[in-house]
Amino acid sequence: MIKMSQAITSAVLVTTGLCFAGLSGGAALADSGSSVMTVEGSRPQITVVGEGSVSTTPDIMRLDTGVEVRRPTPGEAFTAARAAAADLTQALLAAGVAPKDLRTDELTLAPEYKDYPTISGYRATQGVEAVVRDLDKADDVVDAAAAAGEAVRFDGVTFEVSDNRVPLRLARDIAFRDAKSRATQYARLAGRGLGRVMEITEQNVTPPTPFVGFAAAVDRSSISPGRKNVSVSVRVVYELE
């Protein structure tokens, strides 16, 4: 479900020989952004920055997991890590993760020291990233990985939005309406009417930022994707009448 929220912004209006400071609201309604009105010969213009934000629910989970083993020799450690990683991979496949959604993202082998330079053994790791595209299976995938052996390690999860085009379009709509609303208000305060759009520039686009970690959820699930905001800022230049 997509929930739209209108950004609240401030403005500074500048005209030839006249300056109006933007009005500020309460702490909970702090504004951001700016507006500038200029008179250039016979074509007065006003430049505004509108902001829009849309809340959306992630639909993909990236599980960052892997294996870690310690053995007396490098060969033993490396072999054991590869075997444990194979078991983990098979467990993830059995839980419904597609082969194309599994990726090795780490492979290390290093000595460990008791009293340097005396080596006490060797530590080997192999990381496995699993992309879970059906969040209803997220708990099953995590449980399957945890049951794959004592060498398994978890480094957390990241939730993402697979396609942010729809929320971005909605955020742009909100940002443009915000810009037009503020331009109309300040043109009126300056005693002018709002004319045609002269220029549109998309300034800042904030895609859904990944949400990392495990969280409590409803429906007896231990993992929740939460919600993320998609934000857009747009700079619009209007001609004034």
Rank of each mutant, 00 (worst) to 15 (best):
Phe211Arg: 13
Asp101Cys: 05
Asp136His: 04
Gln6Gly: 04
Met4Thr: 05
Val48Trp: 04
Asp115Gln: 12
Phe20Tyr: 11
Asp178Asn: 15
Val152Cys: 01
Arg188Asn: 03
Ser5Met: 09
Ala124Pro: 14
Glu239Trp: 12
Val141Gln: 05
Lys228Glu: 13
Ser32Glu: 03
Thr47Val: 12
Ala21Asp: 04
Ala171Asn: 00
Ala85Met: 09
Val69Cys: 04
Arg71Pro: 01
Ala146Glu: 08
Ala144Asp: 10
Ala217Leu: 05
Cys19Asn: 07
Gly121Arg: 10
Val230Trp: 11
Gly191Asp: 03
Val54Asn: 00
Met1Pro: 07
Ser53Met: 08
Phe154His: 07
Ala144Met: 11
Gly25Met: 05
Ala21Arg: 15
Ser32Phe: 12
Glu129Phe: 09
Ser42Cys: 02
Thr201Gly: 01
Gly66Glu: 03
Ala21Met: 12
Asp178Leu: 00
Asp64Glu: 13
Pro74Phe: 10
Ala146Arg: 15
Pro58Leu: 04
Thr201Ala: 06
Lys180Thr: 03
Val12Phe: 13
Asp136Leu: 01
Ala95Arg: 06
Ile223Phe: 15
Pro58Asn: 02
Arg196Pro: 07
Ile174Arg: 14
Gly66Tyr: 06
Ser231Glu: 11
Val141Ala: 02
Glu40Ser: 07
Asp101Ser: 00
Leu88Val: 09
Pro111Leu: 06
Gly193Glu: 05
Ile8Phe: 05
Tyr238Lys: 00
Glu106His: 08
Lys180Ala: 10
Arg43Phe: 04
Val131Gln: 08
Ala171Pro: 08
Ala98Cys: 00
Leu13Gln: 10
Met4Phe: 01
Asp219Thr: 11
Lys228Gln: 14
Ala175Thr: 08
Val232Leu: 02
Ala215Trp: 12
Val230Pro: 12
Asn229Pro: 05
Arg43Gln: 01
Lys137Ser: 10
Gln90Glu: 10
Val237Thr: 11
Thr125Ala: 15
Glu202Gly: 12
Thr57Arg: 14
Leu13Pro: 01
Val141Glu: 07
Asp155Tyr: 15
Glu129Ile: 14
Glu160Cys: 07
Gln45Asn: 03
Pro111Asp: 03
Pro44Ala: 07
Thr16Ile: 02
Leu92Gly: 09
Ile200Glu: 12
Phe20Asp: 00
Asp87Lys: 15
Ala91Val: 02
Ala151Asp: 08
Thr38Ser: 04
Thr38Cys: 08
Ser5Tyr: 10
Glu40Gly: 03
Ser55Phe: 13
Ser42Ala: 12
Lys137Ile: 00
Ser224Ala: 11
Arg220Asn: 15
Val131Asp: 03
Asp87Phe: 02
Ala183Thr: 09
Arg172Pro: 03
